[in-house]
């Protein structure tokens, strides 16, 4: 980086205004999350009369206690963990070997297979044929259908391949002199080298799994298979958008508003915990996936 320059008066004011505006933006980014958290910790009365705007009013955890008593909430939570972990592992097991093979210039048919995969980024059959295909494969309302049918996408393969291509071929040559075959070279040499890239792909998959709701909503019909986001949609969106239930639970220490807040907060906690640790990998993923081929 450059050495810190000496600024003129105008430049110093520029710096101050810039810092103030960025502070405002940062607060805007955080505010909705703070608001929902405070709402979830306020009394039902304060929540439904709209008194909360920054800090909890009439502090209580009644809404949270009410939510954690709901067994469906925990079932969907456990389901989300299942889909996230098995889905991410399946993705890695498919992406890493394929990307490694595609990164080898000597591979015959490499361009054709690469195009076969990349083409799906520009043209795909769309929602209805995709859905009917899953139906024909008997993967509707199936946990493994959710895990397998969404395990791959062309972008992740290309991102991983770009990383493998950037590794110096001398690593492979040295291992080959020692008599290693392709599987051993991938497992013992390339995978340890590729840890940051693997972490990036793993986190892209995991976040997509944790946050996705659409196909789970479409495909899963049995209540005890649904992930957290579908549970959230049913309880937070579908209830609130009609507002028909409002007032029905007014005698309680919680209200529809504070319950909504509590469900949101409880479901976002894992993301908030891992977010500071994973932030740098996403930055890497954006630059690695880049615009290169």
């Amino acid at each position: 980086m450059m050495s810190r320059p000496i600024y003129s008066v105008g430049d110093r004011w520029f710096g101050r205004v810039n810092a103030i505006l960025l502070t405002i933006f940062a607060l805007c980014a955080l505010y909705p999350i703070v608001y929902v958290t405070s709402l979830s910790m306020s009394s039902g009365e304060a929540g439904s009369s709209g008194q909360v705007w920054l800090w909890p009013v009439e502090w209580t955890l009644a809404a949270h206690q009410h939510v954690v008593k709901n067994s469906l909430f925990w079932i969907s939570y456990a389901n989300t963990f299942f889909y996230t972990v098995t889905g991410t592992l399946t993705s890695l097991a498919l992406v890493i070997p394929a990307a490694y093979a595609l990164s080898k210039a000597r591979l015959r048919g490499r361009r054709v297979i690469g195009f076969f995969i990349a083409f799906t980024m520009w043209f795909h059959a769309g929602m209805i044929p995709f859905y009917l295909n899953l139906r024909d494969l008997d993967l509707l309302d199936s946990r493994w259908g959710i895990v397998i049918a969404f395990a791959l996408n062309a972008f992740n393969v290309i991102l991983m391949r770009n990383f493998f291509e950037s590794v110096s071929p001398t690593f492979e040559e040295a291992a080959r002199i020692d008599g290693a075959n392709d599987f051993q070279i991938l497992w013992k040499v390339y995978i340890p080298l590729a840890k940051p890239a693997i972490a990036t792909v793993a986190l892209l998959c995991a976040i997509a799994r944790w946050n996705g709701y659409f196909w789970s909503m479409v495909l899963l019909k049995t209540e005890d298979k649904i992930p957290l986001q579908v549970f959230l949609k049913k309880t937070v969106i579908e209830v609130n958008i009609t507002e028909s239930v409002a007032g029905a639970i007014s005698q309680q220490p919680y209200s529809l508003e504070t319950i909504t807040g509590a469900i949101i907060v409880l479901s976002i906690i894992p993301v908030l915990i891992v977010y500071p640790m994973i932030q740098k990998y996403f930055t890497k993923g954006v630059t690695l996936g880049g615009i290169k081929e």
């Binding site: 933006f25 940062a26 607060l27 980014a29 955080l30 909705p32 999350i33 608001y35 929902v36 709402l39 929540g47 439904s48 009369s49 709209g50 976040i207 944790w210 946050n211 996705g212 709701y213 986001q229 959230l232 949609k233 937070v236 969106i237 609130n240 958008i241 507002e243 409002a246 508003e257 909504t260 807040g261 469900i263 949101i264 479901s267 976002i268 993301v271 977010y275 932030q279 996403f282």
Partner: peptide, 25 residues
């Protein structure tokens, strides 16, 4: 701070939007 909302799911974003824009409160 500004990267954080990217990691919030659409269902939660929609839930927050609905709460903020609620006609009653």
């Amino acid at each position: 701070a500004v990267y954080l909302p990217h990691f919030v799911s659409f269902v939660i974003v929609a839930g927050i939007v609905i709460a903020l824009l609620s006609p009653g409160n």
